[in-house]
Design a protein around this nucleic acid. Structure first.
Length: 378
RNA sequence: GGACGGGUGGGUGAGUGGCUAAAACCAGCAGACUGUAAAUCUGCCGCUCCUUGCGGGCUACGGAGGUUCGAAUCCUCCCCCGUCCA
């Protein structure tokens, strides 16, 4: 199955219902991708992810390159085989680590020099190298190396990162074209990433320049790095407007449940976020009536499920009291059950969004969801 | 009966004259987390008062006295707890 994308329906808001076809299956969009940085969605088995109907998950080039090494993964038959996952995989390029590991790296026009957080060793990640590593991993969708910057950033800094991201995209394109047809994973495609900080002109320009290079899909990067959510939304909407309607748009690293609908209405087709998984491990659980800290004393003797309107395995089977106990006792099952629930919650919202678009009532769905989540607790 | 060692805030445990309401860790109470250096991190954690401030008062390092301007820290006696010797 080669890569393809088809827009099935467009909502008046700009939200799109679509189908993304990859060598490892079809993904209904808008899609939420769980994050599995190191080739594992923490605390989840692959079987459990399949049960949750996850069709596409995210792994990380930089982390897998450092450990266990992309060549090892290539020898093991590629990432799909290595981690026993027959569905879709999107690999992030390491561009986010430019931002998150800011203390351990130096960015130049050539690429990013990292000092490994694992053993202190030095590594050079160039746009070409990022492509090569992702080829070795054999993901369905790879990402170009970009320069993700912090917020707030000056226009000059944002412009410089956007310019560099564009130059890196040109080099990536060459690297991609050079090897086309000679690969073990012929269906693999690469998405370019639009940068430009919180400046609309920069975003528009960067998007236009990348679009001219004809990538099969585009991502919007550099958002949700600390800016107010209204700005993220504004920039996301502004950017998608500059992207071709027939290509998938991936809004990287977002978002909170109440923001997801907004981003879909901005025209985003794909999203990923660590919030459901990381927050789960930290005892922060999402419900249709607002979040709860399961470790809090009030849940110690609470026989109710996390969310009585949730259909997930955890809510059908376990009480808040038990989950509270597991968390306090530092039991591994705590992370497993919490993650399961939070992922179900995010995936379920996205599924409901797809249905709402299909039925043409996204607007109503959106305001109802918003109202419930903002209504407060329990 | 004798010789040592020890008794510190909910727990473990630093501290041997003032910088100590008393380290650190745990427990407890709350919060944060957005392309994962995260099962992590942050704040609070004796009582009390108010004009909530690097604010006032009170209580506190087994007990009771004492030395000293000042004691968890030094002295005396007592009570416990270990280990060893009779």
């Amino acid at each position: 199955m080669p890569f393809s994308f088809e827009v099935v329906k467009v909502d008046p808001s700009g939200a799109r219902l679509g189908r993304l076809t990859t060598p490892h299956g079809v993904i209904e969009t808008p899609a939420f991708m769980p994050v599995g940085t190191a080739g594992t969605v923490k605390a989840m088995t692959q079987a459990a992810l399949e049960e949750l109907q996850v069709n596409l998950l995210l792994a990380n080039t930089y982390h897998l390159y450092l450990r266990p090494g992309h060549e090892l993964i290539r020898r093991m038959g590629g990432l799909h085989r290595f981690m026993s996952w027959e569905r879709g995989i999107l690999t992030d390029s390491g561009g986010y680590q430019v931002f998150s590991l800011a203390d351990l790296r130096k960015v130049t026009d050539e690429g990013v020099r990292f000092r490994s957080h694992l053993d202190g060793s030095e590594h050079m990640l160039t746009p070409e190298k990022a492509i090569q590593v992702q080829r070795a991993l054999g993901s369905d969708i790879g990402m170009l190396l970009d320069e993700c910057i912090e917020y707030p950033a000056t226009p000059a800094r944002a412009a410089s990162a956007a310019r560099r991201t564009l130059e890196w995209a040109l080099r990536s394109k060459k690297e991609i074209d050079a090897a086309t047809g000679s690969e073990a994973n012929p269906g693999q495609v690469f998405f370019a990433i639009v940068q430009g900080g919180t400046f609309k002109e920069l975003r528009r320009a960067n998007a236009a320049e990348l679009v001219a290079l004809e990538f099969p899909g585009y991502a919007i990067g550099g958002l949700a790095v600390g800016e107010p959510p209204e700005i993220s939304c504004d920039i996301a909407g502004e950017t998608t407007a500059c992207l071709p309607a027939d290509r998938p748009r991936y809004l990287m690293g977002v978002g909170k449940p109440e923001q997801i609908v907004d981003y879909v209405r901005c025209g985003a087709d794909m999203m990923d976020c660590v919030l459901p998984t990381r927050n789960a491990r930290n005892g922060y659980l999402y419900t249709r009536h607002g979040p709860l800290h399961i470790k809090n004393a009030e849940f110690m003797g609470d026989p109710r499920p996390i969310d009585d309107s949730c259909g997930c395995m955890v809510c059908r089977r376990y009480s808040r009291a038990y989950l509270c106990h597991l968390f306090r006792a530092n039991e591994i099952l705590s992370a497993i059950l919490n993650t399961h629930h939070n992922l179900y919650f995010f995936l379920d919202i996205m599924k409901a969004i797809r249905e709402a678009i299909a039925f043409g009532n996204l607007s109503r769905f959106s305001s109802e969801l918003q109202a419930r989540l903002e209504a407060g607790h329990r």
